[in-house]
Design a protein around this nucleic acid. Structure first.
Lengths: 164, 164
DNA sequence: CCTCTGGAGTTCCTTTAAGAGACCCTGTCG
DNA sequence: CGACAGGGTCTCTTAAAGGAACTCCAGAGG
């Protein structure tokens, strides 16, 4: 298939830009694997069942984007992939996906994995809060305004919460 | 191309399950559009520049998944798409994408859109916190444990923070 | 009454990426 | 010195995205 490069047309959208980095099929799962400690080509390939060709492409692209780092771990040509700072912060996205999936898709069996928060020692999950006031921050509690990097074409109603 | 259904093989992964709902190309952007108030077929199509065929498929699938709701808004066959509760909670994901994209990809121009939090009235962004203790919760501050819905095959090291 | 128009999709064809799996290269081990 | 293992490439098939024209329907206009 052909694939559109999202951020080319939708330049002024951070969602589109982010998707250009990890929006391709498998990329988030590759990231997840590296996150949980599967760092080598064959490990990831076996875990995901992804085609080797596609895995090569994804790893290369994620490295190129500065999300992963490719490190030799032997004299021989052997490499491991590690999260960079940029990549580590992307894991927040995975945590939110996990929380949503646990809530809406895990069914009767319950979530497949539980997370214990070091800070409090409890089994918990991630929640969104305002970086400013610390109160919960969700879709229905914010207004969008054009920012410094805005283009001239704000997409119609930029305000959420309005309209029926 | 062929596309693997992620959660079929990776049943015990909420990331994979979530990707099966919104992981297809364009889906997150369609959601974003509905979120900001573009609710009609032609509006979304024009805004994203997506092919009508693909948009039809995506909308249908998102409705089927209970993320969007298709509502008539006229006597004529005219429909609008609205977020359901399930869909509204997915927007959290978009907010995290936005925060990450703003930080790592917006460059000198700065973020294209700013968000004002109703609760405090300030321009801010979303941050992840522990639902239990309220402290920041990030990739490097949690341990993963098998949950009730776990399968027999936990992927090697399920603990983050360990290993070099 | 007949046509025009606008929203909301279909249909069809082309292009290109994912899947599958075989093959290759390099350095070490027995 | 042959087998092996990690980490990829190569090739071929299949199906999904793009693009654009076409359809269907219900009012509005003349």
């Amino acid at each position: 298939m052909q694939r559109t490069n999202f951020s080319e047309e939708l330049a002024a959208c951070s969602v589109a830009r982010t998707l250009d980095v990890i929006g391709e099929p498998w990329s988030p799962l590759v990231l997840r694997d590296v996150w949980v400690g599967l760092r080598r080509f064959d490990q990831i390939q076996a875990d995901l069942g992804i085609s080797r060709k596609v895995l090569t492409e994804r790893l290369g692209y994620l490295v190129e984007q500065g999300v992963l780092e490719r490190r030799p771990y032997d004299q021989r040509p052997r490499y491991e992939y590690h999260l960079t700072q940029k990549g580590t912060e992307l894991v927040d996205l995975l945590m939110v996906m996990t929380a949503w999936g646990d809530k809406w898709l895990s069914g009767e069996a319950g979530p497949p994995v539980l997370y214990r928060h070091h800070a409090c020692g409890e089994i918990s999950h991630a929640e969104l809060r305002c970086a400013h006031c610390g109160e919960p921050m969700h879709a229905d509690g914010i207004d969008a305004l054009p920012g410094p990097g805005a283009t001239a074409a704000p997409a119609a109603a930029a305000t959420t919460g309005s309209a029926a």
